[in-house]
Design a protein around this nucleic acid. Sequence first.
DNA 1: ACCTGAACACCGTTCAAGT
DNA 2: ACCTGAACACCGTTCAAGT
Lengths: 206, 206
Amino acid sequence: MAKTPANNRSYHHGDLKETLLQASLELVSEKGPHGFTLAEVCRKAGVSVAAPYRHYRDKEALLAAIAVSGFELFYDCLASALAASEDKTYGALEALAHASVNFAISNPSRYKVMFGSDLSKVKFPELYATARRAFDVVFCTVEACLIAGGKSTDNTYSLSVSIWSHCHGISMLCVDGFLREIAMEQKVVELIDLAVKSFVGQLQEA
Amino acid sequence: MAKTPANNRSYHHGDLKETLLQASLELVSEKGPHGFTLAEVCRKAGVSVAAPYRHYRDKEALLAAIAVSGFELFYDCLASALAASEDKTYGALEALAHASVNFAISNPSRYKVMFGSDLSKVKFPELYATARRAFDVVFCTVEACLIAGGKSTDNTYSLSVSIWSHCHGISMLCVDGFLREIAMEQKVVELIDLAVKSFVGQLQEA
DNA sequence: ACCTGAACACCGTTCAAGT
DNA sequence: ACCTGAACACCGTTCAAGT
């Protein structure tokens, strides 16, 4: 008792939906996606185990909310990197590549929930929509590169997916511990540079 | 009763360890990694829920066994593709790229268990070892390309990780349903070709 | 040595009941 | 409308007991 902060006029919570999301984010960060448990989230939030069902259809829906908020953060991260880059073409592309992998390494559990949980994109369309919004930052930058180089933009989408998937692959291997021999920060940076270099080479030859 | 095949002289099972693994593989294929439950595996195998603990330390250990067997199959897949390729350099590289993504798309749940389950590579060293064995097929092919082109092989490892991660990224995005607009088989093939092309370009310029 | 039966703690979900 | 309490089915793990 008396675990609720200020808004405790009755047993009503201030904004339980948001509180549950925050508690979930903490839990996932602490114990990883596997340690995410509705019961423990409720304990953290100081409510009964039945309380979340007023705000989320089920456990999966709360997980989807974590993923969606993650994609929004991911978008912010990429948008900031683009904004901070003076060069809005190739330099920006490099900045985006580093920013995306850096996001994954800095938020491994969250990244796994975003991309790795078997969440249906049909059941949760916001998942695809927010992911797509982050992707569009890359898309626009690739387009800018092509235009700056006087190339056709017909292939923008495929090319963007290409660099996007390359960075995603690096992120996933890092996050899942498969790059043990390359785990040092400097090595990862080299790997990203390699990816960007080959991609840029491809952009320029077309 | 009478669910056990031939070896039913007593209540002893023939090779329960292997039977459990097979039942697990079926279950994962049918219901995905999320639907994998020790209790249901036991039902499939026709044994009590306590039986697996004679053969696997816990649920995680059985999951690791699934992953290990998956990496062995993955290795076979890549080795076959290499063997089937007449050209053992760039042509083989292309064949490996297609084979690896094809493996992922053909065995999505298994691929997720292999790469996506939070299995500790310290706790289960065979995981890293078998994954590494599959990777070495790519490594050797990249080396062959470098040698054929008269290039230095100093950078073989980083370059191999680069194409490996690119294919992995494509596989993961496919398997997790993030390439909706590119899900058609032909589009995926184009994407892989793009990856190989940019990688080969990089190999040749060094 | 290998498996069963029973038990325990824990989780996801539902529903009647409280404010 | 929002939350609690109690209940149910289910799962992972353990352990004594059976062969």
